[in-house]
Each structure stands twice: as structure tokens, then as C-alpha cells.
Design a protein around this nucleic acid. Structure first.
Lengths: 133, 133
DNA sequence: CTCTGTGCAAAGCGTTTGCAAACGA
DNA sequence: TCGTTTGCAAACGCTTTGCACAGAG
């Protein structure tokens, strides 16, 4: 059981019930779109506003408490910030999974091959999940 | 000098002056946002409509003549379809560059580690380009 | 008690649609 | 000529903003 109250405060965000529930929903579901987050929170707060979702998502993004995951051909989903990882997306059902990969050698190669100084890698694999294959 | 007339037709798209100019602009600039594409085409067609840009971008995407590149924290850019490659993005000036990387071993690893059947890899490196370092 | 967050309604903005005229093949 | 494309204006949908009241600290 997570105590997001303290974690939110550590990110300079007041621990309102709505925010705690966003954190909890993301923790349970892993990755959620704005739409799904809204539907989910509606079950708990029957008069929550979409504006509240948007305001909180934006504040949480600024505070680096959550992160946006951009996926080809679909709308973005959001996840709690955690250690660097890559994503697997099912082309058919849209399921998103995390996967940990050791990418330092790739980054090293890119730093050598290009004139960029790489700080971040965003890697999305698309294909079919077990159920959809 | 490219003859996009035939290439567009090969994708079942009529070769209108507006489309030829979109193809040409993407070829010259590599990666462009809708906004920049519009500004650029305005110089050649002083009464071109944003709707024309959108309609053509969507048709060209469906025809796989062009592709969308989703970039963290920024709006998407579009590029002519070419061999698979990854992208380098400058966090400061927004410049986007292509880089060819051999990713088959990574895909193989992911196929082994996960239950997904991977078909596509989208890889974006973020950092600072030479000018911005 | 003070300041921030919430919910509602309105505004904003990027994108799409409908239509008549123009154009490509 | 026939079907498609263009440009314009209106419509749309997602996101943001303003404001009064409620709630966290």
C-alpha cells in the first residue's frame, strides 16, 4: 500500500483526494489516457471535472511526478515516473507494457556516430501481444 | 532533382502543385511540423488553405508516402517515408536528424524477453546538438 | 486563516468537414 | 468529361481559462 500523500508533497503538490486517486489509478493500471483516467475517477468522485484531470496532469508533469508516453498512431498515455525503461505497445488491443533494457551501449554508439550529446532515449516497440497474436 | 509526380502517382495520389510542393519541402527540410509546412507553402501559393495541408498530410500518411514522427514534449513532425531509421532531437533548438542504427539484436532480445511479437521500433534520442552544447 | 484546488461554464485552438468552384488525368 | 482537389467557412473535439466556492495545511 502506497502513501502517495507524502510523495505528492515531496513534489510540492497538495495531497487532495483527486490527486491521490490519480496516483493510485496510475499505479494500478500502469498507463492511462486522459479519457480513461476521467472515466476511472468518475466512479470515485461522481462530479469530478475533466478540467481537474487536465490541471492535475499538467501540474504532475511539471513536477515530474508523472510522465507522458507518446505512442505512434494513438493518443498519449501517462505513467508514474520510475527508473528509465522502454515500452511495448500492442497494435491491436493497445496494451502498453514496460520493459527494462540496457541501452548504454546504444547511447554510447550514438554519441560517437553523431554530434549530439544524448541525455534521454525514448524507445517504443510495436507489435502484437500474446492475446492478439 | 526529384520527380515526385510519378512517386505520388505510384501512391495513388494525384500530382497537384500543392502536393508536389509538400513533397519538395519535406525533401529539402527533412522534418517539418504542420505549421512550418503551412508557412513554407504560403510563400509559393499565397492563398493555400490550412485545410489543404491537413487533407494532404492525412492522405499521404494513409498512402505511406510520408510518416509522422512523435517527439517528447513537442508537436509531431512529418518526413518522407524512407528506410527504417532512428531520430535525434535537440532539446534546445528542436532540430531533428536521422540516424541509421542496427537494431535487430535489440528486437531479438525483446522478442525473447517479452511475449510480444515486435514489428516496429520507434527510437528517439534527445540531447543537445553541436550548436546548442 | 490563507492559499491552493475543485467544478462549472465559457473560451481557445488545432483539426476536420461540407460545399461550390477549379483542376488533373 | 469525370472524379478528385482546392479554398473557404463552419463545425468539432480536446484542452485551457476564469471565477466562486470548498478544502488542505
Amino acid at each position: 500500500m502506497n502513501n502517495y500523500t507524502d510523495i505528492l508533497r515531496a513534489h510540492n503538490l497538495k495531497a487532495t483526494p483527486q490527486r491521490l486517486e490519480i496516483a493510485n489509478a496510475l499505479n494500478v493500471n500502469g498507463h492511462m489516457s486522459i479519457e480513461r483516467l476521467y472515466e476511472t475517477l468518475l466512479r470515485k468522485f461522481n462530479s469530478i471535472s475533466l478540467a481537474t484531470i487536465y490541471k492535475n496532469i499538467n501540474l504532475m508533469l511539471e513536477a515530474h511526478f508523472i510522465q507522458e508516453v507518446k505512442i505512434p498512431n494513438t493518443k498519449s498515455v501517462y505513467e508514474l515516473t520510475k527508473e528509465a525503461h522502454s515500452h511495448l505497445v500492442c497494435d491491436k488491443c493497445g496494451k502498453v507494457e514496460d520493459i527494462s533494457l540496457e541501452l548504454s551501449s546504444v547511447v554510447q554508439l550514438v554519441n560517437a556516430k553523431s554530434s549530439f550529446n544524448i541525455e534521454k532515449v525514448d524507445l517504443v516497440f510495436s507489435g502484437l501481444c500474446t492475446n492478439c497474436q
